[in-house]
Design a protein around this nucleic acid. Structure first.
Lengths: 175, 175
DNA sequence: AGCCTACATTCCAAAGTTGACATGTCGTCC
DNA sequence: GGACGACATGTCAACTTTGGAATGTAGGCT
């Protein structure tokens, strides 16, 4: 149930409407925890029902501004410090690797080369994001940079791994 | 819908029952694509309904042995070569990082140090797995090693990143 | 013969996720 | 004053994932 906590985390920075949260997700959290608009509004209602957030203002076009409550902040902190992060990472990319022997060797190599290329592309994109938030001294920028750094290191690792793996296949005896 | 393809991939190595698949998932795929017994049996039925697999033998205790069909093999190969792997990786571990400014600085450091420790632990576990399959010349071992190498590199990267991140926090001006 | 473990399947409820559809309003530019 | 894009929320069906309960059989050991 991390969606709930992602929303609490954003609300902890200040009151926001569902629409605001939607944009914040798109900008900053989409790579870490994607959420659709319907999920957001649904969860916002549940947050209010359970007292973790409350409507603090109503604006034009039916806008409802929500703020985190003390209970919500406590729940957020509890989640951050006391709940063990999920270890398992589903990866259909890696799943395919297990079955690469069912396709032609050349296709297996192609698959891995594509992974390396995709990683490079991702790295370039993240490098640009890092530049955008390079200046900020606010918490969002500081911790955002730490998260971006993770992505950068991850894609570098993946690129190197994929290149190494192609080399492994080259050393394989022909079938 | 990768579960279907994970099962097809295992069936491509030879006929198996739901129970057999369950054990294979536990041993080799649990880190990449966890699946529960109820999912397995359900999907097995659907595989048979859609002609991607078929019952080839019945054994004691109601055992039904399934084998992949030509259509199933074609679908598996199609998935491996033509379907773009999912880029997005949900990570509640990284999500917490975004909100680390809502807890005490010391708790933030503690969180990151715990991540480093967990990564080290994971690395040790994978190193043992690698030893276990170091010998095999069969496709499962070859590609299994490539997958394990990914995990090893991933956890090394995560450990280094977490340690680096603690250093970043140390350079932060006190609130 | 009796017991235990491993084998083996089926069904179900709850929660999470996706993507689409439906509906309406405010502000601004021409 | 009309058109349009951005703002704003709500609902729904389908599918996936999780976790548990219920049920029963075969084989091996004592």
């Amino acid at each position: 149930m991390s969606l709930r906590h992602a929303m609490l985390g954003l609300l902890a920075r200040g009151p926001a409407s569902g629409y605001d949260l939607m944009k914040m997700f798109e900008i900053s959290l989409s790579n870490v925890w994607p959420a659709t608009q319907s999920q957001l509004y649904g969860e916002l209602g549940r947050l209010a029902d359970t007292g973790l957030a409350e409507v603090v203002a109503e604006g034009p076009r039916g806008r409802k501004e929500y703020a985190i409550t003390d209970a919500g902040l406590a729940e957020l902190r509890h989640w951050i410090t006391d709940v063990e992060p999920n270890r398992s990472r589903r990866s259909d990319m890696l799943l395919r690797v297990f079955f690469l022997d069912t396709v032609e060797p050349e296709q297996a190599r192609h698959y891995l080369r594509e992974r390396a290329a995709a990683a490079t592309e991702q790295q370039d994109g993240l490098a640009k994001v890092r530049e955008l938030i390079a200046e900020g001294r606010d918490p969002l920028s500081v911790y955002g940079r730490i998260a971006v750094e993770w992505g950068l290191r991850f894609s570098a690792m993946q690129r190197e791994w994929a290149e190494w793996a192609v080399g492994q296949l080259d050393q394989l005896p022909p079938r």
